[in-house]
């Protein structure tokens, strides 16, 4: 048998084995979420246990450390440099103003760079979309937000944050409010501040809400969003709300329209999940191949990402179904 024949035979043998086995099963999203929750809890418990083990050791060297710290106080040193966070206006609806650290007020324009320390105010008919250190940060109507290098302070109103954009510099977004702070762990969430308190709602991933007295981890569940409400007394309530629909629609007013003409279905689907949350999964590789090859024509201007998904796929051989955090795309045939 020559080399080529041997390779052909080997190829058909491997083919037979793999065909017999079929495609590997996918881990159901619900199990994945439950297991991740278990894993995170145990990691946290293990970290606490490590900390406790270290305490004895720390006590042993505490005196030395205190002595060193005392010494360091006598050595002149310069303060740590303030981190730099790039902030740019990515979308704008209506007119909104920015007040800089020098007290000067300027009307915002799309594409404008914003210096940290500035206060942004929106009116009853205006919203602002920002690229904040690579995060998509959207400010709802009647809101006041101060942008710092390492945190966003929401004085009043509502913001939406998504890490779907490629982040530059920032690894975690921290939104502070009069009632505490909200930190993201790879997620999409809103924070609303009113006279009654702070409401944090997460529809994808996990956020940590710190009330000053305690820290709460809230996690979006399969097909629904988790909400935590903290009032001015520091009392906390949690509920489940819808992950799509009217409560979230305001964020789409700031979506930069997707130019459909000449783009592939794949590009469109990626855009759609980056806006609506979740992970894009194809039933088969051939479905993904189809999505990458077929180019779209026409326009989806005026449609929000949820509605555009239904309308655009209608004209193709693909269908999409949301399963928890996953947008599952498969062939209609």
């Amino acid at each position: 048998m020559n080399e080529s024949e041997r390779k052909d035979e080997e190829d058909s043998d491997i083919s037979l084995l793999l065909k017999l086995a079929g495609p590997r099963e996918k881990l159901p999203q619900e199990l994945k979420q439950n297991w991740e929750s278990v894993f995170r809890q145990e990691l946290k418990a293990a970290a606490k246990s490590r900390q406790s083990r270290r305490r004895k050791w720390i006590a042993g060297v505490a005196a030395t450390v205190a002595f060193c710290a005392l010494l360091l106080n006598f050595i002149p040193h310069s303060p740590a440099p303030e981190p730099v966070t790039m902030v740019r206006v990515s979308s704008l609806s209506g007119s909104a103003a920015m007040t800089g650290v020098d007290g000067k007020t300027t009307e915002l324009e799309k594409g404008m760079h914003i210096a940290t320390g500035s206060l942004i105010e929106t009116g009853s008919d205006s919203r602002v979309g920002l690229n904040y250190g690579g995060y998509s940060l959207r400010i709802d109507i009647n809101s006041r937000v101060t942008l710092h290098a390492s945190a966003v302070h929401l004085v009043s109103g509502q913001v939406y944050a998504s890490d779907a954009v490629q982040r530059i510099g920032l690894t975690q977004l921290n939104i502070t409010t009069p009632q505490g702070s909200v930190r993201d762990i790879g997620t999409q969430f809103t924070v609303r501040v009113s006279a009654e308190g702070t409401v944090a709602t997460v529809r994808q991933g996990i956020i940590l809400v710190d009330t000053g007295a305690s820290e709460f981890q809230i996690e979006a569940q399969r097909g629904s969003a988790a909400r935590l409400w903290v009032n001015n007394m520091g009392e906390v309530q949690s509920t489940q709300v819808s992950a799509t629909g009217e409560n979230w629609r305001w964020i789409y007013a700031l979506v930069e329209p997707f130019e459909l003409e000449g783009k592939s279905i794949y590009d469109f689907l990626q855009w759609s999940v980056s806006e609506t949350g979740g992970e894009l999964v194809f039933s088969r590789a051939s479905d993904e191949l189809y999505a990458r090859r077929v180019l779209l024509h026409g326009s989806a201007t005026g449609l929000d990402p949820e509605r555009a998904l239904l309308t655009v796929l209608e004209a193709t051989d693909l269908k999409a179904q949301r399963q928890g955090d996953t947008l599952l795309v498969s062939s209609r045939r």
Binding site: S15, L18, A21, P23, R24, A285, S286, L289
Partner: peptide, 16 residues
Amino acid sequence: EMKYIEGLNSIEIAEL
């Protein structure tokens, strides 16, 4: 999996 289960050729796999 793409080659032997889905039957895609190397050009199609390259594209994906």
